[in-house]
Amino acid sequence: MNEEKDTIILAFESSCDETSVALVKNGSEVLAQSTATQIKSHQRFGGVVPEVASRHHIEQIIGCLDDVFQETGLAYDDLSAIAVTYGPGLVGALLVGVSAAKAVAFAHGLPLVPVNHMAGHIYAARYSAPIEFPTLALLVSGGHTELVYMPKENEYQIIGETRDDACGEAFDKIGRVLGLNYPAGKEIDELAHQGKDTFNFPRAMEKEDNFDFSFSGLKSAFINTVHHADQIGEKLSQADLAASFQQSVVDVLSEKTLRALQKYPVKQLILAGGVAANSELRARLKEECSKLSGLALIEAPLKYCGDNAAMIGAAGYVAYKHGVRGDMSLNAEPGLEFSWLSE
């Protein structure tokens, strides 16, 4: 008899404004997921307020945990490990997930697997296709913008990142200028489709010989353009503004990614993170990748682009197989980062 037991992981995610719990089988199948999103609450303040976020997490986490057990009928005996996001993110928010995960692991004598939130975003792509190495990931979200090279499974190396604002942060900031609700990414994407790139905003660091990004110059140029028009009483097209901004972002992201692909030949390019849901970015990278032979573009499924526990379960499965373990003193690490690729 050579029957292998399924590896079922209970995963927690609470790094920002979503409380999420999932049960994941063999790192590739979501058995159940329950997510409570606080977006409506933070819309009152125009952005995530950390203390409010932490308070919502503690209200929601047990309900989410209960949902996934009710839905699957699984018991703790069926589990192989508990995976949890321990960073990066908001410290108070992270602590709710970390505390809950440690308590459950202790109560049932289960191994605890600490997961980097960014590894989670990359592994959301696992729900589209198996990942083949070496691989390159473009990670774009409200908190992060980075290019991550993975020579093999469970190894993550940064080759470039934003020097100022994260990409999604820039979307939210210009969204506020346009009078849109937080988070603004989806609305800007829709507006952009009705407009044209007429403003020709700067493409920061596009020609520089590195893989870093910068979005603060673009953000300033955008704000200046709108303020100047306001002062002289000129009415600018919101659609054209959105289209111009989005085009600049997409140009920079794809330009840098293509350059990275030249230096690091890989089998797959993974597009992940909240901003990976942007339709223009998806279309552009699909087009560019189709021109390169032997390269497949893997996009995280739309429903796993934002923060969720399923992606933590997928990355947690890989870490678990590689023997990554946390003990009962595991702490939240708000500034957690992958290490840089050393040349």
């Binding site: 503690i58 209960d66 108070g92 602590l95 809950a100 202790f106 109560a107």
Partner: peptide
């Protein structure tokens, strides 16, 4: 923060 660490731990232990 202290309260949330204690209360989350207590809730998760009691629930599970």
């Amino acid at each position: 923060t202290g309260l949330r660490i204690g209360v989350t731990t207590a809730k998760a232990l009691a629930y599970s």
